[in-house]
Design a protein around this nucleic acid. Sequence first.
DNA 1: CAATGTGAAACCATTCACAGCA
DNA 2: TGCTGTGAATGGTTTCACATTG
Lengths: 217, 217
Amino acid sequence: MNARHNPVIKTTEDGQENYIPAPSRKRLVRLAMLLGQQKKQKMTSSEMAALTGWNRTVIRRDIYFLGIHNGVSNGYDVAVLRAEICRTFGIAEQGVHAFCVVGLGNLGTALLDDFSISGGVFFLAAGFDSNMNRTEILKSSVPLFPTLDLEEKIKSLNIEYAVLSVPDEKAQFITDRLVRCGIKGIVNYTNTFLSVPRGVGVENAGTITVLTKMIAT
Amino acid sequence: MNARHNPVIKTTEDGQENYIPAPSRKRLVRLAMLLGQQKKQKMTSSEMAALTGWNRTVIRRDIYFLGIHNGVSNGYDVAVLRAEICRTFGIAEQGVHAFCVVGLGNLGTALLDDFSISGGVFFLAAGFDSNMNRTEILKSSVPLFPTLDLEEKIKSLNIEYAVLSVPDEKAQFITDRLVRCGIKGIVNYTNTFLSVPRGVGVENAGTITVLTKMIAT
DNA sequence: CAATGTGAAACCATTCACAGCA
DNA sequence: TGCTGTGAATGGTTTCACATTG
């Protein structure tokens, strides 16, 4: 009676019907990063479980969604698995997903300076601040621009993601501008709710917001 | 045949069986914070939906889990609702949940300085760094201690939550120490997986980790 | 035998649909 | 009429259980 009452999971060879549920997607992408840091050549689902804290059945199911078969009774080939996840989600194996930091107050500047921030497949391409003095005075290996140029630079530098560390009261305003530029996702270090259209990702990472969530654990 | 095939949701007056699902719990706590900033005396589920981006039915259901009835056909009484959420989750109405920042590098220091960080029900009670010089040199309105004193200070200051901004390679080591102190939850600004026993909350808020999750959106 | 692969069951969360109330 | 309260239906994710395979 209802179309698709079965899980709709097959990755058919012609590319249709390869829907993977959101929780699985997130785990898989995270797993890919982890596999990249691994020296072992083969890993079992149990080993991955130990490493991630996830249940081993869930890991097997996630991998099953990919539609590959490179593991039976020996564990999975780390390189093959990682490559397949990258292929499935369009993750570049070399670092080409550009992102920017908007708002160079204490937090934003710290993020800029933090050497570890460019890593894996992400590449910090720019910083923005509304205070033009600040973008001129701050020293950074990353190019800094006034927020005036936000739209132009996001286009020209092919920036896909933004880290938002502006004052709370400007958060929604900047978000709207980012959305209009076609940003794919925002890491929200402010402690406000952001409203974005469907299709734009938001992850709330502000200290208070996150602490708040944790109270309910 | 199976015990509890019904949703197990009733808050009975004698306090048993008041299980609330995790997603609802998180939303409710977040909602309480928001209600605290509201000037209106009554709010409908639709208004809350507009404010949060959540579906209005989900909000009504969440409130339903609380087992109170203060809304019919008029919207909910903001103060009553907020008080009830606080009571249910043991949230202090005044700011008494103490937390600390561990690791005072760029990011940690920025978090310390960030004025907005103490707010709502959370109170920044201490900062820790393994570099004793740094804890002496840094100026801050928050007391700073060497990480040596972590255990002692967490006890004496009644610290419940920790913000982790140490270098990645120290993350698990510090986490283990925090767990042994009975910490309730950790906001993880490093980009590592933390392994903690059941009952301790972890929320990953490191830029790369969060960007990674977002790729799969 | 210890691993994956996988249909089916169980579980959990969201949404529908509507009764009842101000 | 517009709101909450709520049983029931739906939809989605995890887990079980076991056949299969190296």
